[in-house]
Computed example of a mutant assay.
Amino acid sequence: MTGSISPNNKKTVVGFSATTGIILYGGFGAAGLVLGYFLPQLAAWAVKLPWVPFEGPLKLVNSFSGIWANLIIALLGFIAGLVVASIAVKETLVVTITDEAVQLDKDGHKQTIGRKEIDTVFLDGKQLVILGKSGYELAREKMDESPKTVVDGFKKHGYSWSSEGDPFRYEYRRWVPDTPELSTTANAFMRAREMALQKKDVKDIKELRNELIKLGYIVREEETRQYWRKVQKT
C-alpha cells in the first residue's frame, strides 16, 4: 500500500536525523576537500613507484601546480564528497512511525503500511521486516540505525514487536534447483535470484524477491543460500 502520513499525527522518525546529515555531508565533504588539495602531491609520490598503474593520468595530475590549481582541485574534491554524501543519504532507509501507519522512505520511493495491515515487526540481522496478518512480508529493508532505536520507535506506538525474530523461521526450507514443491516459474525466479546474489546485484535481488511474493513465496537468504516458505496469496 502506498500513500502518506498525515502531518498532524504524532510521529517517530527513525533512520535519519540532522546529526546524521551533518556527519555524512561534513565528513565526505571534508574528506574530498583534503584529498583534492593534496592530490597533486600524492600523484607526485605515486609516479615514483614502479608498480603503480595509470602512470599517464598520474603525471597529468602532478603537472598541476600552484596555489590556485590546488584550490580548484580541492573544490572539485569537496563537490565530489557532497555528491557521495547525497547518494548515501538517498540510500538510507527512513522510517516514520505513527499510531496509524508506518512509512518507509528509501531511494526516493515511499511505502505506507496501515496499522490494521501489520501483524508483527522484527529485525532479521540488519533488515527491518514488517509482516502482515497472513504471514506475508509487507516490507523487508536494510536498516542501519541501532536496534534499540528501532525497537523503541515501534514499541512507543504500540506495534507488536517480535524480540525473537521471525515467528515463521522454522517454516523456511532450503532451496535447491528444481525443488518439486515450487512451481516452474518460482524455480526460474529462484535460479535467477541465486545468480543475482552471486553478482551482488541489489536491484535484481529485490525485484525477483517481489516477483516470488506475488506467487505466494516468501524468500530470505544467507549469503547466496536461499530459503523459502509458502503463504496464502492475498
Results as ranks from 00 to 15, higher is better:
M1G: 04
M1C: 04
T2D: 07
G3W: 09
S6Q: 10
S6K: 13
N8G: 08
N9E: 13
N9P: 04
K10D: 12
K11A: 11
T12R: 12
V14N: 00
S17A: 09
T19H: 09
T20Q: 06
T20D: 11
Y25E: 11
G26L: 11
G27C: 05
G27I: 06
G27H: 04
F28D: 05
G29N: 05
A31R: 03
G32V: 09
F38C: 03
P40V: 15
L42M: 12
A43W: 12
A44Y: 02
W45S: 13
W45M: 15
P50R: 14
P50H: 08
P53W: 00
G56T: 11
L58M: 13
S63E: 14
S65G: 12
A69L: 10
N70W: 14
N70A: 07
I72C: 07
A74W: 13
L75D: 06
L76A: 12
L82N: 13
V83P: 00
V83S: 11
A85F: 01
A85W: 01
S86W: 14
S86T: 14
I87F: 11
A88Y: 00
K90V: 03
L93Y: 04
V94P: 10
V95C: 03
T96S: 10
D99Q: 15
E100F: 02
A101I: 00
A101R: 01
Q103Y: 10
K106C: 04
D107S: 08
K110W: 06
Q111H: 09
K116S: 15
K116L: 13
K116A: 15
T120K: 13
V129F: 08
I130K: 05
S134L: 14
S134I: 11
G135K: 12
G135C: 12
Y136G: 07
L138C: 00
A139I: 05
E141M: 07
M143N: 05
E145V: 03
E145G: 00
S146T: 14
P147Y: 05
K148W: 07
K148V: 06
K148R: 09
V150G: 01
D152Q: 11
D152W: 02
F154L: 04
K155R: 08
K156G: 07
K156A: 02
H157S: 05
H157P: 15
G158Y: 01
Y159H: 04
S160E: 02
W161N: 10
S162W: 00
G165S: 10
D166L: 04
R169I: 10
Y170V: 07
E171D: 14
E171M: 07
E171N: 13
Y172N: 01
R173C: 02
V176C: 00
T179I: 03
E181L: 11
E181R: 12
E181Q: 11
L182I: 05
T184W: 09
T185D: 04
A186Y: 02
A188I: 01
F189A: 04
E194H: 13
E194N: 10
A196T: 00
L197T: 04
L197S: 02
D201R: 06
V202S: 08
K203L: 08
K203Q: 07
I205D: 09
I205R: 06
K206E: 12
E207K: 09
R209S: 11
R209Q: 11
E211Q: 12
E223W: 13
E223V: 08
Q226T: 11
